[in-house]
Every structure is written in structure tokens, then in C-alpha cells.
């Protein structure tokens, strides 16, 4: 790890002022940043410890939603009684990720901003356009079992590794941000981005901007939902493919369904266009299959990850069935029913 100046501001205003400089990083739980600094992937000159900022509460919003403070640990979020009752999908997705110890340290803001787990991104001896713009991409034509099948570019095929963010995508969350130019709210769909020809940019946060919270709108997806995570071992492993579903079923018919995929792209993958196919349908393997084909339109394998396309198709169908039948995937008993 390189040496750095350490600052521990007490207010958001001070933090944002300090965050405006060059090569500055905000430090929350540290579970991603410290790891990257140990590998010399990230070498900030200044580390701003934001853990003393008053962003550690979960609060009611006018109109019935919840605001999740950026510094609330992932475990406290998943086990908050209001989140468990009103947003069980979010609890489930968080509990599917990392380990109990990591979730205790990891924060909501840090989870949103965690970097890819691409092996080449982590290995400073190899080329990587995300770590070192213009150096090339080791994963294209290389070892790419965990890489993207959707929305990749010829410069980067990395995936966003978060489970929490996949749930946020179908919950239509909003990211609250403050920075040198003041406050703004970013819809979750616009928060993460595709790599395009600027793969070093994971999201649309501007330099120096700080996430202060995540807003969840008031919606009732407490029965028909699921988070299905498919991976190489049952726990403590990143998703190869994950599927978040929320649904409203009225008189045996799908009134609304939202589906997002994790582990397949540079951001949670969702298509509101494809979701229209499910509206008004009776739950059936045929309807689910047609939707899966629409959501996966344009999917391409990179060689080692070709299997993900079929895995995703089957996973989508299974997850839609779980949501329609109100039998969400258990994150304790991992058998897929």
C-alpha cells in the first residue's frame, strides 16, 4: 500500500471540500478500497475517512419510502425491520452477498461504488483499460469466465459485482449525491454506466461527489419477489448470474414485473421494453421464456463465459416462477426450488 495523507472530516461540507482535490478517495468500510490499495490498483494521495459523517441512519421519507444512509452497514440495512418488511428483496440480495463479517463493515455507499472483480483489473502486471486507460484489455481473448455477456465494448468486458445494486435496480431507487456543484438525485438506472470508450468510468458520479443516501420509493413488492444468485459455491462467492424480480399479480395475471440481472454487464441489466411482454400475461414457462429471450437479446459470450447466456435464460425463467408463486429464494437453504 502506498503512503497517503489521512483526513477525518466531521461534516459532509468538510468532506466534500477535501474531496475536491486530485487523487483523493473517500474511505467508508474499506472492504474494497483497502483491498485495491494493497494490490496497488488504487494509489490515492489522500484518503478521506467519511465514517464520522452523520449519514448512518435509515429514515422515513414523505410518501412512505425509506432513505438508506450511505454509511449504514450492509448488514444493518438487510436486518432493519422496516427494510425486511417493506423491501424484503433488498434484504435478500444483500444477504446473498459477501460474508457476515464483510457485510458488517461494508456500507451502502461503498457497495454502490465497489469496483469490478476482473482478474486483470486487479493484476497491475497486465494491461487493463479500466485501471490504465489505453493499455488494452487482458480479458478479451483471455480468462473471462466471470465477464460480461451484455453491453460490453471492445475496450472492456468487466461486470459490476454488486448484489445490492441488482435489487435497487428493480426497486427504482434513487441515489442522493452531494458535491462541489451542490446536491443532485440520480435514478439508479443512470447511476452505473456501460464501459463504451471510457471504461475507467464505472458510474456517473462526478469527481469529488459523495453519495449521501439511497432512496427507496413506497411500493408494495412484499409477496411476489425473489433474488436468485447463481455462483461457483453456495456462499461467499460473487454471482456468475443473478436475477432480481419484483411482480404484482392481480387475479392470476401479471400486472407488472420488473427484472434485473447481475453478473452479466457493467451495470445491473434491465429492459423496461422487454418487461412490457410480461404485462397482462398468465405466469407460464412460455411467457417467461419469451421474456428471457427479449432481455438477453444481443447477448454474446467471450469464450469462457459462453455458458452464462443459457444460465441466465434458465435463471430468469426460474426466478420469474419463484416470484409469481410467492416462493422467494431462501438465502439460507440454497436449494433452488
Amino acid at each position: 500500500m502506498n503512503r497517503f495523507d489521512y483526513a477525518r472530516p466531521a461534516s459532509v461540507a468538510e468532506a466534500v471540500q477535501a474531496g475536491a482535490g486530485e487523487q483523493v478517495r473517500y474511505l467508508a468500510g474499506g472492504t474494497n478500497l483497502i483491498d485495491l490499495m494493497k494490490e496497488n490498483v488504487d494509489r490515492p494521495m489522500t484518503v478521506i475517512d467519511i465514517n464520522r459523517l452523520p449519514l448512518d441512519a435509515i429514515e422515513e421519507l414523505d410518501g412512505g419510502g425509506l432513505r438508506l444512509g450511505a454509511l449504514v452497514p450492509n448488514s444493518n440495512t438487510a436486518w432493519d425491520a422496516r427494510v425486511e418488511q417493506r423491501y424484503p428483496l433488498l434484504s435478500s440480495a444483500i444477504l446473498a452477498g459477501a460474508s457476515p463479517q464483510l457485510r458488517n463493515a461494508a456500507t451502502n455507499g461503498g457497495n454502490l461504488n465497489q469496483r469490478t472483480r476482473c482478474y486483470y483489473f486487479y493484476d497491475v502486471a497486465t494491461p487493463c483499460n479500466k485501471r490504465e486507460p489505453g493499455s488494452g484489455c487482458g480479458a478479451i481473448g483471455g480468462v473471462n469466465r466471470i465477464h460480461a455477456i451484455l453491453g460490453a465494448s471492445d475496450q472492456c468486458i468487466a461486470t459490476h459485482p454488486s448484489d445490492m445494486c441488482v435489487a435497487l435496480a428493480v426497486l427504482d431507487a434513487t441515489v442522493q449525491v452531494t458535491g462541489p456543484d451542490g446536491d443532485r438525485a440520480i435514478p439508479i438506472a443512470d447511476y452505473h454506466r456501460l464501459p463504451g470508450d471510457e471504461p475507467w468510468r464505472d458510474n456517473t458520479l462526478k469527481p469529488g461527489e459523495l453519495v449521501t443516501g439511497i432512496d427507496l420509493p413506497a411500493e408494495d413488492f412484499t409477496q411476489n419477489y425473489t433474488y436468485l444468485k447463481l455462483r461457483d459455491r453456495l456462499s461467499y462467492a460473487f454471482a456468475l448470474v443473478s436475477i432480481a424480480v419484483v411482480m404484482r399479480v392481480e387475479d392470476g395475471t401479471i400486472a407488472e414485473a420488473r427484472v434485473a440481472l447481475g453478473g452479466v454487464a457493467h451495470k445491473p441489466w434491465r429492459s423496461t421494453e422487454a418487461e412490457k411482454l410480461l404485462k397482462g400475461q398468465q405466469p407460464s414457462p412460455q411467457a417467461f421464456g419469451a421474456f428471457a429471450d427479449a432481455l438477453l437479446a444481443g447477448a454474446v459470450g467471450q469464450g469462457e463465459n459462453d455458458f452464462k447466456i443459457l444460465l441466465a435464460r434458465k435463471g430468469i425463467i426460474r426466478a420469474l416462477k419463484q416470484a409469481a408463486e410467492a416462493t422467494p429464494q431462501s438465502q439460507t437453504d440454497k436449494r433452488v426450488a
Partner: peptide, 22 residues
């Protein structure tokens, strides 16, 4: 791996990814 697990204010964390000054 979890070998470095300790309790901070009663909560378990991985001490390898935590800066002491924080």
C-alpha cells in the same frame, strides 16, 4: 478467508481490510 476476524464494538469484521486509525 475470515482468519483475521475480530470483534469491534461487539461486531465481527475482517481486521485485514480495516485501517486501525479509522
Amino acid at each position: 478467508c475470515g482468519a483475521c476476524t475480530v470483534l469491534v464494538d461487539g461486531r465481527r469484521i475482517n481486521s485485514c481490510l480495516k485501517l486501525a486509525v479509522t
